[in-house]
């Protein structure tokens, strides 16, 4: 498995091929459509992250000391960004997830979606990703 940083660089490279925002968005929407869906049994109210407008579901499992994230959203653009975040963070160790930042989202021109005042649930989602990492980290070290 590549490191989070390597995956993030890979994503930045992919997005650098596009000339304008429309192509970037179209690609992101495609990624959203191909996002492995969260299992229906995990699409519960307790896994829901409430943004003001779009809903995000996030579930995490620990497999061989790595966290596997699955997620979904009812808005496709939100889902596209989730797909990107999951690609970077899923299958990584709790410690690496905790140490990683999300600056690459700026680099691929999607910064506006991660503004703390943006009502799309993504900022809360990243917080939730990190909280899972804290929880599993504690579990592993016990």
């Amino acid at each position: 498995m590549s490191s989070i940083k390597d995956i993030q660089n890979e994503i930045v490279d992919e997005f650098s091929m596009f000339d304008d925002w429309m192509q970037r968005y179209e690609y992101m929407i495609e990624l959203g459509k191909s996002l492995p869906l969260i299992a229906e049994e995990h699409k519960t109210d307790s896994n829901i992250i409430k943004g003001c407008q779009s809903r995000v579901w996030l579930h995490a499992d620990l497999k061989d000391e790595k966290i596997v994230f699955t997620a979904d959203s009812d808005a496709i653009i939100t889902k596209g960004i989730i797909a990107i975040l999951i690609r970077a963070f899923s299958g990584q160790s709790p410690k690496d997830i905790l140490d990683a930042d999300t600056g690459f989202i700026d680099e691929i021109g999607l910064k506006e979606h991660l503004s703390p005042t943006r009502a799309n649930g993504l900022v809360s989602m990243i917080k939730q990703l990190k909280l899972y990492a804290v929880a599993y980290q504690t579990q592993i070290s016990e």
Binding site: M22, Y25, Q53, S54, D74, A75, I76, T78
Partner: peptide, 21 residues
């Protein structure tokens, strides 16, 4: 089949301000 938030986001990229939600 399309979430209003997605439409609002694309319209904003095109300089058009609407409300969604």
């Amino acid at each position: 089949g399309i979430h209003p938030y997605d439409i609002g986001t694309i319209l904003d990229k095109l300089g058009i301000a609407v409300r969604t939600g």
